[in-house]
Structures are given as structure tokens and as C-alpha cells.
Amino acid sequence: MSEQSSQGDDDPGEPLRLSVIVPVWQEAATIQATLQHLASIREAGHQVIVVDGGSDDGTPQLAEPRCDRVLSSGGRGRACQMNAGAEVATGNVLLFLHADTRLPGSTLAALKRFHTSRNAWGRFNVRLSGKRPLFRVIEWFMNRRSWLTGIATGDQALFVRRPVFEALRGFREIPLMEDVELSARLRLVSRPFCVTDPVVTDSRRWEQQGAWRTIFLMWRLRWRYWRGESPESLANAYRSDVRNAQEP
């Protein structure tokens, strides 16, 4: 495995203490498998926190035996959930993981290297779970875009040093683009540490809504965001597009 970073001298101070924060909502069908993939991280002495956004399908109860803490954020919205998890986390590095994303087996080794680097934050390359050749093209563009811009999205399992996250006051609690917004602020602190061993993200969203439709939707939303449109307006546009895609 290789990664791009501005490496400094090894820090002989405190070792890596990782807190993985997983925001969830209505994930009863998948939460047990999600947390099983994180079992080796817990066994190594690190922390896994699940933050529920008001599920009524039993997600919190299914998660409880397989993580260190289950919280309720008091409302849906990944930004709110991830900030709630960060408040109770004990780690010196926080990693924010979507429930449909799987970390590579080399995660702890990579984050130990990050911990001794000068970088303030980082992200993984991403791979989509689907087998279609189009998904390989989408992955390439996602990873290349992130490399060139220094901006990461939630699918890339963003991680950050806790003091930096706290100094920036965490995620802005907006309904969409919270990961892009935080990345833009983190980029002012340092370039991201890039782990090239990819996380694997479920491609069901692309498959259910149509790959090309999803590509155009996400680029359209990002373009409108960079032009200054409010996250609330973009969230409404996203929900409307998803509803239209689901109609027969």
C-alpha cells in the first residue's frame, strides 16, 4: 500500500487511538454486517460509535452488542449525528464512516502512518461494489477529482485529528454537502493524507437510481453549491430527484 502525505519525523508521543463514528438511519438490514467489518478495529483496542438518527426499525438495538456506544442524535442529518459522536469519542483520531462503506484491512496500519505525519486530516480512495465497467470509470474520476482538489466526500471515509476537528467546530450542521464544506476548511490547514487502499462503498444508490442519472445529479448539485446556492435548497432538489427516479 502507498499513500501521499507530507511525512514528518515519527512522533514518539501517544499512540494512535482511533474512534470510528458511524451515522445510521433505518439500517436494520445491514448494521450487523457493517459492525462485523469493524470487529478487528475494536479488538485492537479502538472505539466504534454508532449514532442513530431516529430509526424505528430496531437499528440501535441490533448495533448495541457490536459497538462501544450507541447514541441518538435527537434528529436525522449526518452532520448532526457525526458531531454528536465526536463529542463522546475518546480517540485522538476521528474517522467518519458511512454505514454502507467498508474499510480495507490495512486501515490501522495506514492510520498509524497518518498519525506520525504532519497532515491534519485525510481520506481513502473509493471503490464501488458493483461489477459494471462504468463503475471503474466513476471511481477513477472520484479519486482523481479528490486528488486534484483536496476535497473529500463522505464515501471516502474522512478522518481527522481530534484537536483540529474541535478547533474547526466540527461539521457545519447543514442537510447536504457537510463533508465538502468541512473538507474545504480542512484543506486550509493541510493537504489530505491519501490512503490508496480503497474503501468499498455499496453501489446500490447508483444502480437503483441509474448510474448516469446519479453522476449528472451529483455534479449538478456540486456546481450549484460552489455557485453559492444554499444546502437546504440543494437537499430539496436531491430529494425531489430521488423521488422521481423511484416513480414507475
Rank of each mutant, 00 (worst) to 15 (best):
E87Q: 11
V88D: 00
V88L: 00
A89M: 03
T90R: 09
G91L: 05
G91S: 09
N92A: 06
N92K: 07
V93Y: 05
L95I: 03
D100Q: 06
D100C: 05
L103P: 05
L103A: 10
P104F: 15
G105W: 13
S106V: 14
S106H: 11
T107W: 14
A110G: 09
L111F: 10
K112Q: 15
K112P: 12
K112L: 12
K112I: 12
H115A: 12
T116M: 15
T116S: 15
R118Y: 01
A120E: 15
W121S: 12
G122K: 14
R123V: 10
R123C: 15
R127E: 14
R127F: 05
L128H: 06
S129L: 07
S129M: 06
G130C: 00
G130L: 00
G130I: 02
R132D: 02
R132K: 04
P133K: 09
L134S: 11
F135C: 04
F135H: 05
R136W: 03
V137S: 07
E139S: 08
E139P: 07
E139I: 05
W140T: 07
F141Y: 08
F141G: 07
N143I: 12
N143P: 08
R144W: 14
R144K: 13
R145M: 08
S146M: 10
I151V: 13
G154I: 01
D155W: 00
D155S: 06
A157R: 08
L158F: 10
R161F: 09
R162E: 09
R162S: 11
V164H: 01
V164K: 07
V164A: 08
F165Y: 13
A167L: 10
A167H: 14
A167Y: 10
L168F: 09
L168S: 09
F171P: 02
I174K: 05
P175W: 03
L176Q: 00
E178T: 04
E178I: 06
D179Q: 03
V180E: 12
L182E: 06
L182R: 03
S183I: 12
S183E: 15
A184H: 09
A184L: 12
R185N: 14
R187C: 13
L188E: 05
L188Y: 02
T196D: 11
V199K: 10
V200L: 07
V200E: 04
T201N: 04
D202Y: 02
R204A: 01
R205T: 01
R205C: 04
